[in-house]
Nucleic acid binder design. Structure first.
Lengths: 207, 183
DNA sequence: AACTTACTTTTTAAAGC
DNA sequence: GCTTTAAAAAGTAAGTT
């Protein structure tokens, strides 16, 4: 009887210790990425649900924490790419992606694929672009979405192309390299996407 | 009914003998690659019908790359004959062959909207992460196949054990998209 | 900017780590 | 789970020329 109680206490301690570690990890990664308190709390809720459903079995606490943070960013419409999450985690992009799929399915998060529009504010701030450019970029993406020009394309690449075009239209041009760097894509990708968007949306780009 | 799919790859397994001396095969067959530390199987490629073999010390063999189910038997029989001519007298020249997987492609010939399909089929039934891969992943229970759906209307069906299962997978996707009014 | 090569996803068996 | 093989789909990436 006494051993039974000791075991419960031990398990309880381990569970609490693991939860504390996970939460500190979430905070460390969130800080490194400059995420808001809202996103951190959302990630913590997702992590706790994962623990309640015993989804940690066979997985590392860090992997689930990283996946929870990735999911939280998407749920809060302030997405981070798997590569960005992986940069502040000790878990690989592949492992985070695999854990995300598992957790997302088990908790029925039902998240739609990331919208390029959600990357616009962050990328524009990173480029010191004003609200006008931001609004223009979003407008371009709305039109692009209606004409289904973004299907199957990487959201960051499409967002980067929209910002590149918007910056030119607003007379506050950023080079492809500058946009590529903040968006984490190559200049080739921006070139391919912006040419396609300009062509299909009938936008004249005068360099 | 015209064929709606193109078989791109057939994977099959069989057992040609009770055991194989992979070092001897590597020495006898030109082009054979064997690095026990890297992988326990010996890799050997043939051109007849083109295919690649993975040969194991247990006598079991995996054949991949064939373009037809019929080519699988042809290529495996040729492989058995080659091994026999190289000194393996006990190889089975008419082994039981198990097709394990068939990869096929198809074309619905209409542009598709992955986002609409994701909502139509249900987010819990599909996987679509354009940040990672342009195709939408749809897993069908019966037949147990996986269909990759692209915005171009092109499809990839994999996991099927027969061409019929792959055809059925395409048929199911086509019917479901039609019912959803997304075709 | 064009080419080439290559990696992302999915599937599947094999023997061993 | 990984290692190795083959193959398609379409996007993105990297190295050459």
């Amino acid at each position: 009887r006494l051993r039974k109680w000791q075991r419960r206490i031990r398990v309880s301690n381990a569970t609490e210790r693991n939860l504390a570690f996970a939460l500190s990890e979430l905070d460390r990664m969130a800080s490194a990425l400059g995420l808001s308190r809202n996103v951190r709390e959302t990630a913590a809720v997702i992590y706790r649900k994962a623990v309640d459903k015993n989804l940690i079995r066979g997985r590392s606490i860090e992997g689930v924490a990283a996946a929870a943070l990735y999911a939280a960013c998407r749920q809060c419409n302030v997405p981070r790419t798997l590569d960005e999450i992986a940069e502040v985690s000790r878990v690989s992009r592949k492992e985070i992606g695999r854990t995300y799929r598992f957790v997302s399915r088990e908790l029925a998060l039902k998240l739609m694929p990331t919208s390029p529009i959600d990357y616009i504010p962050r990328f524009c701030s990173g480029l010191s672009l004003k609200g006008e450019v931001q609004a223009k970029g979003i407008e371009i993406l709305r039109q692009a979405a209606e004409k289904e020009l973004t299907s199957g394309r990487g959201p960051t690449g499409v967002a980067a192309a929209a910002i590149y075009i918007a910056s030119i239209l607003c007379g506050d041009r950023r080079t492809q390299r500058e946009v590529a760097d903040v968006a984490g894509v190559t200049e080739v990708t921006i070139r391919n996407r912006y040419k396609e968007l300009a062509e299909e949306l009938g936008i004249e780009i005068i360099l | 009914m015209e064929s709606t799919i193109n078989i791109e790859n057939v994977v099959a397994s069989t057992k040609l003998a009770e055991e194989f001396d992979l070092i001897k095969i590597e020495a006898e067959l030109e082009g054979a690659e064997y690095n026990k530390e890297k992988f326990p199987g010996l890799v050997y490629r043939v051109k007849s019908p083109r295919a690649a073999f993975l040969i194991f010390t247990s006598g079991k063999v995996v054949c991949t790359g064939a373009k037809n189910v019929e080519d699988v038997r042809t290529v495996i029989t040729n492989m058995a004959q080659t091994l026999k001519s190289i000194g393996f007298e006990d190889v089975n020249l008419d082994p039981e062959i198990h097709v394990q997987n068939i990869v096929a492609s198809a074309d619905l010939k209409t542009d598709l909207n992955p986002n609409a399909i994701a909502l139509g089929l249900g987010l819990e039934n599909i996987e679509y992460e354009p940040e990672q891969f342009p195709g939408l992943v749809y897993r069908i229970k019966t037949p147990k196949v996986v269909v990759l759906i692209f915005s171009s209307g092109k499809l990839v069906v994999t996991g099927g054990k027969s061409p019929e299962e792959c055809e059925e997978g395409v048929k199911i996707v086509r019917v479901q998209l039609e019912n959803l009014g997304l075709l």
